[in-house]
Measured scan of single mutants.
Amino acid sequence: MFYPNSPQTSPQLTQIPYGQQYAMMQRQIQQPYHPFATTEPQARLYPYHYQGPIQQEQGGFITQQSTAASPQYVQMRVTPVDQSIMSGYPNQTANGSSSSSFNYNIHPQQQQQQQQQQQQLRHHAMPVGSVPLQDDRYRKQLIVNYLAPDVTSTDLHELFSRFGELDGARIIYDKQTNMSKGYGFVYFCHAEDAKEAVERMSGYEFHGKWLKVGYSTNPLNIVPSNSSPYVHAGSRGAAG
């Protein structure tokens, strides 16, 4: 039997160049792979992502010199942007860049009308829970959420009447099932009393439920100042 490094198959040491006398086997001759043993700084910083320098080929596509990437890492192929796409944008300079302001050559009167329309939209648009300043009635009506099913309009009136005089209180019921929808409205005579009720009743436990109280901004629920107070009856038909 002959071994790869046996004296019968191995040459004389004098015939082997210096430095390879003890590297006779194939696994010894093959050098191990060192990912950080390279002179390129990109490979030292990113050993798993770097795959060699990027070269520009004919046709405008950018390719990489090395083989496919590892399945664990996804390499994105980048193509140059066609400058003709950006030619339609206004205020574009000769080098292809555009300024931040756009001039669509709008007539001054049209621009003024658009600004007025935007101001009107901001004036009428009102986020949930906010209180408008032009109508004091919005500051007097509250919406009470997360009410228990057994709470009546009379219970709601008695709960909030300790903060001040009320114009009314009612629970909203479903017309088909005649069941409470879980929320109601309270109408105060003074805005200061309503503000105190919002601050003190939010998070209050009532009939096993934690109440959420806020201003009601729905104009359909506003009680006119010259109208008669609501009837605080315990029956659902009268309260709904």
Rank of each mutant, 00 (worst) to 15 (best):
F2K: 02
P4G: 02
S10M: 13
L13I: 07
T14A: 05
Q15D: 07
P17D: 10
Q21Y: 15
Q21D: 02
Q21E: 06
Y22F: 10
M25C: 10
I29F: 15
I29Y: 15
I29K: 02
Q30G: 08
Q31W: 15
Y33F: 09
H34V: 05
A37S: 11
T39I: 12
A43M: 09
Y50P: 04
G52P: 09
P53S: 12
I54K: 01
I54D: 02
Q56K: 02
Q56A: 10
E57L: 15
Q58V: 14
G59A: 09
P71S: 05
P71L: 13
Q72H: 06
Y73E: 02
Y73R: 03
V74H: 05
V74S: 06
V74C: 14
M76V: 13
R77L: 15
R77C: 15
T79A: 08
D82L: 15
D82W: 15
Q83I: 15
N91A: 08
Q92K: 12
A94S: 08
N95V: 09
G96M: 09
S99V: 14
S100R: 12
S101W: 13
S101Q: 13
F102N: 03
N105Y: 15
N105W: 15
Q109G: 13
Q109R: 07
Q116L: 13
Q116T: 03
Q116K: 03
Q120T: 12
Q120E: 06
L121Q: 07
H124S: 04
G129A: 11
P132Y: 15
Q134N: 06
Q134A: 04
D135V: 03
D136W: 02
Y138Q: 03
R139K: 12
Q141A: 01
Y146G: 01
P149Y: 07
V151W: 02
T154A: 09
D155A: 09
L156S: 09
H157I: 07
E158I: 12
R162L: 11
G164P: 06
D167H: 05
D167W: 06
G168D: 01
R170Y: 00
Q176I: 10
M179Y: 14
M179W: 10
Y183L: 00
Y187C: 01
C189L: 09
H190M: 02
E192C: 03
K195I: 08
E196L: 06
R200S: 06
S202P: 09
G203V: 00
F206H: 02
F206R: 00
H207T: 01
W210A: 02
L211E: 01
L211Q: 00
V213S: 00
N221I: 13
I222V: 07
V223A: 09
S227A: 09
S228L: 09
P229H: 14
P229M: 04
P229L: 10
Y230S: 07
H232R: 09
S235I: 02
R236K: 07
R236Y: 01
G237W: 02
G237A: 04
